[in-house]
Amino acid sequence: MSRKRWWAASIGALVLVGLAVHAQRPSSPPAFAVGRPAVSPQPAPPDLATRTQRGAGALAGLLPIQQPDASPPPGRIRTASGPVTVRYTFDGGVGRPITDHLGRHELRPLGQNGGALRLVRQGSGLALSYPDRCRLAHERDCPRAILEGRRDDTLNPGTKRLQYGAAVRMSPADLSEGANVVQKGYSVGRVSQYKLQVDHRLGHPSCVLAGDGAIYRAEPTVNVADGRWHKLECTRARSKLTLTIDDAPAATVAVPPSLSIANAEPLRVGGKGTGKSNDQFAGEIDNVFIQIS
């Protein structure tokens, strides 16, 4: 055999051996088996509002949290055309919307950062319990919860006689620099307001009217944060605003007879909103009422 033929035969034999060895090797593993095992993609976690709704709705005695409305629609702001009486006892439970004694003026629970409202026993009925006073380092992280209605100009008294208030129960641990009980409107931004609050860490309740760039406050040096129920009532009768505590007059301040209270804001119970620095109430509220005559 010539040298040329011998080299050709040798090379051909080596090729055949290589092909046979390759055929006996196991195939390469799939790419996803290398490193961390492949897993099915997980759905994104629900947003905070959704978690709050599910958590509140799943527990007995908690009111399901809803989402706030957008800004009130523009339009002419009206006042009550006749007598108005609105009372909330909260005795209907969690199985139906919270409305006044005649089934009107619905209030919806709103919350943020997991804040929730509870209905608790009060005498033979129910009262509304708010989140405990927040002790977190950052106020922006605090749970917040209120009741809020929708725009309702029939609750604007204008210059008419106005009575509003609620029963509250607070302890010293519930106090803060601001705790709003009932309000409609704001005291800044050229928006008029009527409000009942328990301000300062001294537990002083106060009635507030605001409008025309001025704020009028009737505030006694009485501490109502003693763990007992107290009836707080504000009365605006033309030229004066009076606060009564348990049916006894406690403080009076003069107000201009021309001061008109009318705004497009909803009625709120327990705070001025659900955002940061909302003057969150802590404690229990019952028998909220508004009367215009």
Score class of each variant (00 low, 15 high):
residue 188 V to E: 14
residue 276 K to G: 11
residue 102 L to D: 12
residue 289 F to R: 09
residue 123 G to W: 02
residue 240 K to W: 10
residue 8 A to M: 10
residue 49 A to E: 12
residue 226 D to C: 05
residue 122 Q to T: 09
residue 49 A to C: 00
residue 25 R to M: 13
residue 212 D to T: 05
residue 265 E to S: 10
residue 26 P to V: 00
residue 101 H to Y: 06
residue 286 D to A: 15
residue 158 G to N: 07
residue 165 G to W: 06
residue 87 R to E: 14
residue 2 S to T: 14
residue 173 A to H: 11
residue 88 Y to V: 06
residue 181 V to M: 04
residue 145 A to R: 03
residue 149 G to C: 08
residue 285 I to C: 00
residue 156 N to I: 08
residue 217 R to Q: 15
residue 45 P to V: 12
residue 131 P to K: 07
residue 54 R to E: 14
residue 138 H to M: 09
residue 166 A to D: 02
residue 288 V to H: 02
residue 141 D to F: 08
residue 78 R to F: 13
residue 71 S to D: 13
residue 28 S to M: 13
residue 184 K to S: 06
residue 140 R to V: 11
residue 152 D to P: 03
residue 151 R to M: 05
residue 222 V to Q: 14
residue 110 L to E: 09
residue 86 V to L: 13
residue 193 Q to G: 02
residue 289 F to L: 07
residue 286 D to F: 04
residue 131 P to T: 05
residue 7 W to G: 03
residue 147 L to T: 04
residue 102 L to I: 00
residue 266 P to F: 00
residue 246 D to E: 09
residue 45 P to R: 08
residue 117 L to I: 12
residue 222 V to F: 15
residue 157 P to S: 04
residue 68 P to Q: 10
residue 239 S to W: 02
residue 231 K to H: 11
residue 173 A to C: 00
residue 199 D to R: 08
residue 73 P to M: 04
residue 82 G to V: 04
residue 194 Y to C: 04
residue 276 K to I: 12
residue 169 R to W: 00
residue 100 D to W: 03
residue 107 L to W: 01
residue 141 D to E: 10
residue 264 A to W: 01
residue 203 G to A: 02
residue 114 G to C: 08
residue 240 K to H: 14
residue 228 R to E: 13
residue 128 L to W: 03
residue 171 S to Q: 15
residue 256 P to R: 02
residue 46 P to H: 05
residue 137 A to L: 13
residue 130 Y to M: 15
residue 273 G to K: 01
residue 109 P to Q: 05
residue 130 Y to R: 06
residue 28 S to T: 10
residue 90 F to R: 05
residue 139 E to M: 09
residue 146 I to R: 04
residue 193 Q to L: 11
residue 106 E to S: 12
residue 232 L to F: 07
residue 93 G to L: 04
residue 166 A to W: 01
residue 117 L to E: 01
residue 11 I to Q: 10
residue 38 A to P: 15
residue 142 C to G: 03
residue 112 Q to L: 13
residue 201 R to V: 08
residue 33 A to W: 13
residue 222 V to L: 14
residue 176 S to F: 00
residue 283 G to K: 05
residue 145 A to I: 06
residue 280 Q to D: 07
residue 288 V to W: 06
residue 33 A to P: 00
residue 16 L to G: 04
residue 112 Q to N: 10
residue 276 K to R: 13
residue 116 A to L: 10
residue 158 G to T: 05
residue 252 T to S: 14
residue 142 C to N: 01
residue 242 T to K: 06
residue 162 L to A: 01
residue 162 L to T: 03
residue 8 A to V: 12
residue 236 R to M: 01
residue 36 R to P: 14
residue 147 L to N: 02
residue 279 D to K: 08
residue 87 R to I: 12
residue 39 V to Q: 11
residue 214 A to H: 14
residue 264 A to H: 10
residue 278 N to G: 06
residue 119 L to F: 07
residue 81 S to K: 13
residue 56 A to L: 06
residue 230 H to F: 09
residue 228 R to D: 12
residue 190 R to T: 10
residue 10 S to G: 14
residue 33 A to V: 13
residue 225 A to D: 06
residue 236 R to P: 06
residue 232 L to Q: 07
residue 176 S to R: 11
residue 156 N to Y: 04
residue 263 N to W: 01
residue 125 G to P: 02
residue 267 L to S: 04
residue 224 V to M: 11
residue 82 G to Y: 01
residue 80 A to Q: 04
residue 233 E to N: 09
residue 282 A to Y: 00
residue 70 A to D: 14
residue 89 T to C: 07
residue 176 S to D: 13
